[in-house]
């Protein structure tokens, strides 16, 4: 890509590193986010999906803790549940604040914008609720809020950053599973951490969204996962939809020219 966001921001880009290997599934991040951002309640249901009752990210859920139960060993650890291997994966999902953000690209009102911190934020007073950003996001993050009719998602606490405060979820996370900071530094920290976890026997550990060469140009919020991304409900190889847009426009141009030519031909003959 010609435009390099990291360079453009001059090292000012902030992000989240969510280290799921130390997440304890307490959901403090979900609660802190709701409180700070006045995100409305969106149903308290028993889903039967382990301890998960928020199901997924949406206009009214900006942090979502996933719970996965597996009959698989956790490194060299003895689970102590009889003859069964068992592990419990938990991960706090959030908007990825993509380098190449599809939601931002397709927004026809300019409501979604890139902040000075490199994050992606909706302007509630500009959005007209066209809903284009919703299917554009390859992660299923952003949604349209029923009550207000406009799009809503994580802002990485845009209102806390100027005051020198970290986002509410990171602040409250008791295990430091959610770490906030300078993106470059977080990436280094994540590389170190990955090595540490892998050496401890978790060979399936991997970083997700750390690589600036992936389909979305690297994520501003990236993760250390202990299994395949799809297990946590994340797409394994997300690609910003606008990557194919130049080709789409070329095809549209050809079709439009064809339509013109075709109709001209049908009208040409007298009878």
């Amino acid at each position: 890509m010609a435009f390099d966001l990291d360079e453009h921001l001059n090292g000012n880009r902030v992000g989240f590193f969510t280290d799921t290997s130390i997440c304890i599934g307490c959901k403090a991040c979900e609660v802190a986010c709701k409180e700070w951002n006045h995100v409305p309640e969106d149903g308290l249901d028993f889903t039967g999906m382990s301890y998960d009752n928020t199901v997924g990210l949406s206009a009214d859920t900006w942090r979502h803790v996933a719970f996965v139960e597996q009959r698989t060993p956790m490194g060299r650890q003895e689970p102590g549940v009889g003859d069964m291997d068992f592990r419990w994966l938990m991960s706090s999902d959030v908007c990825k604040h993509c380098t190449h953000a599809a939601c931002l690209d397709v927004c026809p009102t300019g409501s979604l914008f890139r902040t000075e911190y490199g994050t992606v934020v909706v302007q509630e007073d500009v959005c007209n609720g066209c809903g284009y950003c919703v299917p554009a996001c390859p992660f299923g993050v952003i949604g349209k809020r029923e009550t207000t009719g406009v799009a809503a998602k994580c802002t990485m606490c845009y209102d806390r950053l100027p005051a020198g405060e970290e986002p509410a979820c990171a602040k409250t996370c008791p295990t430091d599973s959610i770490q906030f900071g300078d993106l470059d530094e977080l990436r280094e920290r994540a590389d170190r951490r990955l090595r540490q976890v892998q050496e401890a026997g978790m060979t399936s550990a991997r970083l997700y969204g750390r690589d600036p060469d992936d389909g979305v140009g690297g994520m501003g919020a990236f993760f250390l996962l202990l299994d395949e991304p799809e297990v946590y409900g994340l797409p394994p190889d997300p690609v910003v939809t606008t990557r194919d847009l130049p080709s789409m426009w070329r095809h549209v141009g050809m079709a439009a020219a064809g339509l013109l030519a075709g109709i001209a031909v049908t009208a040409w003959r007298r009878r």
């Binding site: 130390i22 996965v68 060993p73 430091d176 799809e230």
Partner: peptide
């Protein structure tokens, strides 16, 4: 604390590792 390593406690009894089916979605 955030450097705590999962699965490092050790002592896992050898089990017949059941074949893992690959989950391709979250529930």
């Amino acid at each position: 604390d955030r450097e705590a390593t999962p699965g490092s406690a050790g002592g896992r009894r050898e089990r017949l590792v059941t074949h893992r089916e690959r989950a391709d979605s979250y529930y």
